[in-house]
Design a binder for these strands. Structure first.
Lengths: 187, 187
DNA sequence: GTCTATATCGCGATAGAC
DNA sequence: GTCTATCGCGATATAGAC
């Protein structure tokens, strides 16, 4: 057995989420978090690059998932079809069924400017992953960048609408509706 | 008369930009900046909310400009026409002729994650200003949000392309070309 | 203007897993 | 032995309170 209870990272995450919920993000200090987790301040920064990172542990996972989905799709699949299918998979595996949890997280992020900026970086990372995926598939640079940004935009707006409402539409339905609205707007 | 040469804010900004260029953003401390400007650390934070803000002094101005342009346009102007004209004005008054300066700024922002996040917030602020403008003009909420985001996306991608190349196209031309590409992509 | 809290990170030591 | 997680101490910068 280890001298220290294992999985310190997860204990730190749990403690941090509890404290953020109890007293807010800004009012919670790293020493408070580590005290609750039974660790030291220094240890916190070995696991997380900064205090905000606790709320964005899955940031990289989405980009990796996007990269994998795009790499695995047959070369013949057209860009917009790939986007449609990819967003459906993303919606079903990472969003559907988590509405309450995601709402709570959104409310917390809304309380702090630093968290909002970090959230924007997450969106940018997704756009970048899509751009890279299309470049790898042989799409030219400006088309790839445009597809990445539009895809990230449509997804984030759709998530907002989906979280705002209580109607039983799935996120994927909202995404398709957003694309339709966009087409109508530009056309 | 003041005991100190006036316009401390501008001296701070100059000193900061020099030091950022000489040694990088992260390696430059606020005490260093204020020492060069002949002021105290406290004075720096009276003028700027944080170290990054030095590079984003015009952040609010663009949002205000967007709000004004949208409020002044006749009610009969269609959304996409308003966007087209608004982006043209923005491109001509705030970007055209500043390519070298904007390139240097972009290179600096690229060196620091914190600066990139702040840059993303600037983009988000613009999208939000456009969204609010359309809401005021009576457009429904989801259309307004979509128009704001798409507009911000097209502008930022166009700026990137315009800064990347040395060709003599104006930013406004690149913006229109980006809209055309987007239409083709979705259609 | 001064003072202070807090975030962040570098370094060397230590404990246990393998 | 090596590798990794942790500790304890301390330094510095940012940022805000007073």
């Amino acid at each position: 057995m280890s001298r220290w209870p294992s999985d310190g990272r997860e204990r730190l995450r749990q403690a941090a989420l509890e404290l953020f919920a109890e007293q807010g993000f800004a009012a919670t200090t790293v020493p408070e978090i580590t005290a609750r987790a039974g660790l030291t301040t220094r240890t916190f920064f070995r696991h997380f690059p900064d205090k905000r990172a606790v709320l964005f542990v899955d940031e990289d996972e989405i980009s990796e998932m996007v990269a994998r989905l795009m790499a695995e799709a047959p070369a013949a699949v057209e860009p917009m079809a790939l986007i449609r299918d990819g967003l459906r998979v993303l919606a079903e595996t990472r969003f559907e069924g988590r509405r309450p949890e995601l709402r709570a997280r959104r409310a917390l992020v809304a309380t702090d400017a630093g968290l909002q900026e970090r959230d924007l970086r997450k969106r940018a990372a997704m756009a970048e992953a899509i751009r890279t995926g299309f470049l790898t598939r042989g799409i030219d640079a400006s088309r790839a960048a445009l597809l990445g940004e539009v895809c990230a935009t449509v997804l984030s707006l759709s998530i907002e609408e989906w979280l705002d409402s209580d109607d039983p539409r799935t996120l994927d339905h909202v995404v398709q509706a957003t694309f339709d609205t966009l087409r109508a707007e530009l056309g």
